[in-house]
Amino acid sequence: MPQPAFFRRTYDETMTLMVEARNYLTFAERRERERVGGMVGLRMSCEAMRVTSRLTQVMAWLMLQRAVQEGEVEAEEALRDECRLSGADVCLDESFSGDETLPNHLRSLMDRSYRLYVRVARLEEMLIQRVLH
């Protein structure tokens, strides 16, 4: 069964963001964190982990939805609590989203990963309504 267009676009967006975040964290974030040091450096590390958490949660959810589309997992099973998008307490925290002391690229990753996570959470809620009710 072919994947719905929204799924392909969301998957591609997630993968692109994951690669961008990996490249940033591998090549730029450490240098920037060492340059600014102190509390800003600590916030940078925390927000980088938050970006990573958002993206891995979304990708795990998308992979499970792909398994549903392929008939490998039942839709009801994929929507059990333990299979749902998780980490909301960490992933939805925007405490430092407007922190101008953080590097622009990191703030951009923070914003885009947040919006992606929120969008996937809405998709999941729509699926729950459709499948379970």
Score class of each variant (00 low, 15 high):
residue 22 R to T: 05
residue 129 Q to A: 09
residue 128 I to A: 12
residue 52 T to S: 13
residue 37 G to V: 00
residue 43 R to W: 06
residue 6 F to H: 13
residue 17 L to W: 02
residue 77 E to W: 01
residue 6 F to V: 15
residue 100 E to I: 11
residue 87 G to C: 10
residue 72 E to N: 11
residue 1 M to P: 08
residue 53 S to H: 12
residue 107 R to S: 02
residue 9 R to N: 14
residue 98 G to N: 09
residue 77 E to H: 06
residue 16 T to W: 01
residue 128 I to Y: 03
residue 89 D to A: 15
residue 45 S to I: 02
residue 12 D to M: 05
residue 66 R to Q: 15
residue 109 L to V: 12
residue 37 G to F: 01
residue 54 R to S: 04
residue 47 E to G: 00
residue 76 E to Y: 01
residue 46 C to K: 07
residue 116 L to R: 15
residue 35 R to Y: 05
residue 50 R to N: 10
residue 61 W to D: 08
residue 19 V to T: 11
residue 65 Q to K: 05
residue 57 Q to M: 13
residue 41 G to P: 07
residue 130 R to T: 14
residue 22 R to E: 06
residue 31 R to K: 14
residue 29 E to G: 08
residue 117 Y to W: 12
residue 105 H to E: 14
residue 93 D to L: 02
residue 105 H to D: 10
residue 85 L to H: 05
residue 26 T to A: 06
residue 118 V to E: 11
residue 3 Q to I: 06
residue 84 R to L: 13
residue 105 H to T: 11
residue 127 L to R: 05
residue 36 V to A: 06
residue 113 S to G: 11
residue 91 C to L: 02
residue 92 L to H: 02
residue 130 R to M: 07
residue 123 L to T: 06
residue 86 S to A: 15
residue 2 P to V: 03
residue 36 V to Q: 04
residue 45 S to E: 14
residue 47 E to W: 05
residue 118 V to Y: 05
residue 7 F to S: 04
residue 16 T to A: 15
residue 46 C to H: 08
residue 67 A to D: 14
residue 56 T to K: 01
residue 35 R to I: 00
residue 57 Q to E: 15
residue 2 P to G: 02
